[in-house]
Simulated assay, not measured.
Amino acid sequence: MAKAPKLKDQAHIVTANHLTGGDVVYLTARNDWSRDIAAAFVAPNAEAAAAWLTEAEAQAARNIVVAPYLVPVDASTTPPRPIQFRERIRAAGPTTEQQPAA
């Protein structure tokens, strides 16, 4: 059986949900938020990403975003590709189709 990767050694980005619209957003190098994962600041590992998470948590305290957390990514691709399947789904956008108004 293959060993699970050591996610702490992976590059990481910070994600959250935007407070007003609920959209998935990513913390950028400018300390603002983007819906585009390609704009996310990529920290080389979880330890380096901790400072970015602290900034994101401060923004959550100011009611800009909800529940920020670190996402391990493959930084060798553009845009960075989340390691975890759930995060790849979140990065791809909503999985439900908007229904036409009745």
Results as ranks from 00 to 15, higher is better:
27 L>R: 03
73 V>N: 04
56 A>Q: 00
98 Q>Y: 03
69 Y>L: 10
3 K>P: 08
35 R>P: 07
56 A>H: 00
70 L>M: 13
70 L>Y: 01
69 Y>T: 07
70 L>D: 01
3 K>W: 09
5 P>K: 07
76 S>Q: 12
41 F>S: 06
39 A>R: 07
27 L>V: 13
6 K>T: 15
21 G>W: 10
85 F>K: 11
8 K>H: 09
58 A>E: 10
7 L>R: 05
91 A>F: 08
30 R>K: 12
66 V>F: 03
96 T>Y: 07
96 T>M: 10
47 E>K: 08
42 V>L: 10
21 G>N: 14
60 A>D: 01
101 A>G: 10
53 L>T: 02
39 A>E: 13
52 W>G: 10
18 H>T: 02
68 P>V: 04
82 P>E: 11
76 S>V: 15
82 P>R: 11
71 V>F: 04
100 P>K: 09
98 Q>N: 03
15 T>V: 06
78 T>R: 09
57 E>H: 07
93 G>I: 09
40 A>I: 05
69 Y>E: 05
30 R>L: 11
57 E>F: 05
29 A>P: 02
52 W>M: 08
44 P>T: 12
93 G>A: 02
38 A>H: 06
31 N>S: 12
46 A>T: 08
83 I>N: 02
25 V>K: 00
82 P>W: 07
52 W>Y: 10
63 N>L: 12
57 E>S: 09
27 L>C: 07
71 V>M: 05
88 R>D: 09
56 A>C: 06
93 G>R: 04
58 A>G: 14
